[in-house]
Nucleic acid binder design. Structure first.
Lengths: 261, 261
DNA sequence: CGTGTTATTGACCAACATCAAACTTAGTGG
DNA sequence: CCACTAAGTTTGATGTTGGTCAATAACACG
């Protein structure tokens, strides 16, 4: 499997995905921000992993839960979000294969938001116990996990900036930049194009905009020749201009040299 | 010192602030989210702390820095923020005595935002080395520090919700709710009123609004008898209504029972 | 007292939301 | 393969929130 796909690999030949290939996703992802040696990688591969196959739009963890496992995304697109009293939703983050989207539940008992799939997805559950034990025994692993959490928080900060101080078109461009770089680091970009199974309503809920406005902003970006998006596929036509519109600087993603763009 | 004050204690009798009183701030703050035993508290008090007195509006850490110490707020009001290319600012968080606002620099080298004082402040610098060493030796301390970081991230998430999905008046109310609960937990509330040395421009930069609109929103809240604010002092007149306007639910602050409201 | 900062006001404007309808697409069952 | 349906996208018309600009008022401080 040389080129992975966010949502298609579900329908690929599953015989090829051995257990160790699941762990490889995790290893690769953690290695993105913290350098891991061979020993670390071995150790990570010993983590118990209960794999589960989920339909699209299914809740993985709900606000208020007290989970005893952390979730590892193996395939598909996963998001964290909060529902408000008036029925509106705010998406907090998007997660790709290799991400541990609720690692914070290791140290913070109660979930203050929910986690669910957009696409059909495979996720792995890793018992907190195992993660704690390994982190305590192997500080390098603990450090890698913490760095993962903290890089996550850095993304939250950037989203605050995005929502607070950028106009709609820049917000959209910035989101595309972020996702593009993160997907690139995972080898999930083919021909400058990313498959994001997000509706315009989903984008609106991530960007704090209305659906209608998202539609108009996308049209503007298409018209200006910055991106070309057609349903689920979004192609970055002019990366430099996209970055410019967004005011994007990838350093907040805290990727090691050689990862990202 | 029974009643502390965010900005006034600077001018109090400093003879009474022994080293151990500085550490007490940290202990009390960490104990808010993670239960500490006497041994943990002892250990925390052994951390080396270089205390420094800073004028108002001075930068403590700058975006791009690679700090070797973490900052402990001892007195005063501190904020994290990002400056954008067009000169606008987005405040990311506000920090009170006992907070460790850049603890993430322990694991993430490069600062992706800046840290500075609003008021005159006293801050303590704790070498990363010491924090790492103690965390490794005493997992309970490591855990408390991580929980502090993660509760921080929970606040970022709530700010994303605030900026993305709440109208201006609710945003303002929500910020007041958060600060009120956090200050209450630190015993920094006197007569339902909090001293926040923030200008309306500062509030605007925290809430993603314009100064003019902040002014009008504050007037509306005053007019509705929800808060009374007069310069730097903000009094919560009707807490229930403030919560209602904000849609506030303090659980995202992840305080242990008995802390908060 | 000045002088600089902050708060307040009014007039006007722009960005974005809302509403409602039409259109497109993908999927489903006959 | 087609008709039917549901979900998503697009459009237009209109409304509102909140931004911008500019002037004035109120403080705060040396």
């Amino acid at each position: 499997v040389t080129t992975l796909s966010i949502s298609d690999s579900i329908s690929e030949n599953h015989e090829r995905l051995s257990i160790s290939e699941n762990h490889a996703r995790l290893v690769r992802r953690l290695d993105m921000s913290t350098e891991l040696n061979e020993n670390d990688k071995e150790l990570l591969s010993t983590l118990p992993l209960r794999v589960s196959r989920l339909p699209p739009h299914s809740e993985i963890v709900r606000e208020g839960d007290h989970p005893h496992d952390s979730v590892l995304v193996l395939d598909g697109l996963v998001s964290r979000y909060r529902m408000l009293g008036d029925g509106t939703r705010q998406i907090l983050s998007l997660h790709f294969p290799g991400d541990l989207p609720d690692l914070q539940s290791l140290y913070i008992e109660r979930m203050d938001h929910s986690l669910s799939t957009f696409t059909a997805a495979r996720v792995g559950y890793i018992p907190h116990e195992a993660l704690r034990e390994l982190s305590a025994r192997e500080p390098r692993i603990g450090r890698a996990l913490m760095t993962h959490c903290l890089a996550d928080a850095a993304i939250f900060r950037e989203w605050i900036v995005n929502l607070g101080r950028r106009p709609a078109i820049a917000r959209m461009a910035h989101l595309f930049c972020e996702l593009y770089v993160r997907l690139k680091a995972l080898d999930l970009i083919t021909a400058d194009s990313m498959e994001l199974p997000l509706t315009q309503t989903d984008l609106a809920d991530a960007l704090g905009l209305s659906t209608v406005h998202v539609n108009r902003v996308l049209q503007a970006l298409r018209h200006d020749g910055v991106i070309y998006s057609d349903g689920r596929r979004h192609r970055v036509v002019d990366w430099e201009r996209l970055k410019l519109v967004a005011g994007f600087d990838q350093r907040y993603l805290h990727m090691r040299n050689g990862f990202g763009i």
